[in-house]
């Protein structure tokens, strides 16, 4: 099952840990906030996580200093 990494933008402070752990998924923008390299239907708040990246994504969820990340199953995709 594909999972997506949901970014809660109201919490995110752009500390940069997730972008280090998931360099193939996220980069940092001008202000340090995570920027999804690939948009899914124009939505760049919920990048899809490939099976190879799941462990790193879990680590990112765990270590995010602002608790701004969560992994959610594809079906329960947040409203766009």
């Amino acid at each position: 099952m594909t999972e997506i990494l949901h970014i809660d933008w109201t919490r995110c402070d752009g500390r940069g840990l997730c972008t280090e752990l998931l360099p193939t998924v996220l980069v940092r923008d001008d202000w340090g906030y995570p920027l999804a390299l690939q948009a899914t239907n124009g939505n760049r708040s919920n990048p899809a996580i490939s099976p190879g990246n799941i462990e790193a994504a879990r680590e990112a969820v765990h270590l995010c200093p602002k608790l701004a990340l969560s992994l959610v199953p594809e079906q329960a995709k947040p409203r766009q």
Binding site: W9, T10, D13, G14, D29, D30, W31, G32, Y33
Partner: peptide, 12 residues
């Protein structure tokens, strides 16, 4: 001014 990209991107 809750979300970084909006808070900094729009003024830019």
């Amino acid at each position: 001014k809750q979300c970084g990209p909006c808070m900094f991107g729009l003024p830019a």
